[in-house]
Design a protein around this nucleic acid. Structure first.
Lengths: 140, 140
DNA sequence: CTAGAATCTCTAGCCACTATAGGATCAAGA
DNA sequence: TCTTGATCCTATAGTGGCTAGAGATTCTAG
């Protein structure tokens, strides 16, 4: 393998500066270098970065990814912890969806009621100025 | 009125350091000060901060809030711009909801299929390691 | 007058990157 | 061998929208 960082980036979809950043925060190990001080990666790093990218896409925080990665290194351990991380993340996603849907209702109503006239008659500005005009509970 | 910053915070639900921060970034004007250099606010600022807080709760970015505030100062102008800001924000919220719902599907499936055994059999770890196992299109 | 709550400024930290500057190295072709 | 241009290196600073802390000052009620 012996991939330079750009090739690793291409294969995993993680940008070059982000890979270096991940190394800096200890999410991936520092790889060996060429004589000219350039990083060279192997298959392990491809897998690991794919794992990281996928977990990030699913919205897991870096600290949780750290734990998940550590777990994946211990195949015989119980997956209870992984389960609980994923479950709590799922709950968090549910909360966000709910909140965004409440926002959506308010926004849609604002936009809908806008008469496209002048500012002084505009429901958008009016509603923003007065939370009391909101019907939905859009505040966490 | 002549409210100290803490009282303004209490009345608007915006925290004291945040009010100072908003002043720093020019979202609100620097108010008059007492002889001892403490800020004193009037009704205008209560309204303006309520507007800002509400818009933030609805997820508007500070730069958009800046524009919306400027508009609310010109009651005779057309509300076309306010409408377009709100509409594009609504679209953005829709995009986020869709994305989160796709994530939710994947997460729920992962959690659901976890047999609560060992890491090596765990669907959570397995799916994270291999995007190909995802059914839904959870990427942007 | 005093005590303690509230205020002040300034700096740094949060998250997960992204951007930029100013060099060094690598690989392929002439 | 030399050159060219793509890729790589480090280091620092910036993003958004705040939040936290230190250490000093001011306000207000008793």
């Amino acid at each position: 393998m012996n991939l330079p960082i750009g090739e690793l980036a291409r294969r995993t979809g993680v940008k070059v500066p982000t890979i270096r950043f991940y190394e800096q925060i200890g999410l991936i190990d520092a790889p060996p270098r060429t004589e000219g001080n350039q990083r060279r990666y192997g298959k392990t790093e491809v897998d690991r970065l794919n794992f990281i990218r996928h977990a990030r896409e699913l919205g897991f925080e870096v600290d949780h990814i750290r734990e998940l990665l550590a777990m994946s290194q211990e195949p015989q351990a119980s997956c209870h912890q992984a389960d609980s991380i994923a479950k709590s993340h799922l709950r968090e996603v549910d909360r966000r969806i709910e909140k965004l849907q409440a926002l959506r209702v308010e926004l849609a109503r604002m936009v809908d009621e806008c008469g496209h006239g002048r500012i002084c008659d505009c429901r958008i500005i009016e509603v923003l100025a007065d939370h009391g005009q909101c019907t939905a509970e859009h505040v966490s």
